[in-house]
Amino acid sequence: MQNKRIVFVGVGGQGNLLITRLLGEASLAKGIPALVSEIHGMAQRGGIVESAVVMGNVSSPIVAEGEADILVGFEPMETLRAIGKVRKDGLVLTNTAPLPPFTVSIGQGSYPDLELILNLLRSKVDRMFTLNAKGLAETAGSLQSLNMVLLGGLIGLDHLDIGPGEMKETISSNTKKSFLEANLKAFDLGWEEVNHEVQSAGPEPVS
């Protein structure tokens, strides 16, 4: 397969380190070399947490500005802030449920209109996919499985050589029993919504 660079951006506590690790594990299980880069430490206290997965014949674990094939955003404004990470012909998958930073509450700036954010995002890349990951996680039975909704959506893009069954195997072997049902359901909900959109849009234009 071609080399793939995927960048995940979210807010501390949303669980993006877990899904980057799971994606890396699934990739290796499939025989595709993978490296993951994580941010630990101060940023995890409610700040922005960025992580990356690179798959294929790549030595560098991090992804430079403008070089991600896929950007997965856990929070719409943070997706917009990180939009420079993705290639012009890349893909964006974003959660649409806002999580305003505390700076907004204390009057330092205002949270932009959600439609404005989504329209700006759409204008920047060839293809964008949205998920109400918070809503779908609630439907799945646990707000904490928001990350699994997005992982489902990412696999649903049909852009990586990892199928939903393979991904779910990795999730199953790495998740505590009590969370597993909600996690798999959340994954499915994300996968179905995105994959439906991908299928109905027809084949991807050759780049």
Binding site: V11, G12, M42, A43, Q44, R45, G46, G47, I48, E65, G66, E67, M77, E78, L80, R81, I83, G84, V86, R87, K88, P100, P101, T103, V104, Q108, G109, S110, Y111, P112, L116, L120, K124, V125
Partner: peptide, 17 residues
Amino acid sequence: PEKIDSSDIPDLPQRPP
């Protein structure tokens, strides 16, 4: 490679830890 033009993105509120 040509990068995304982000000049029209408004100032976003900061999200410090």
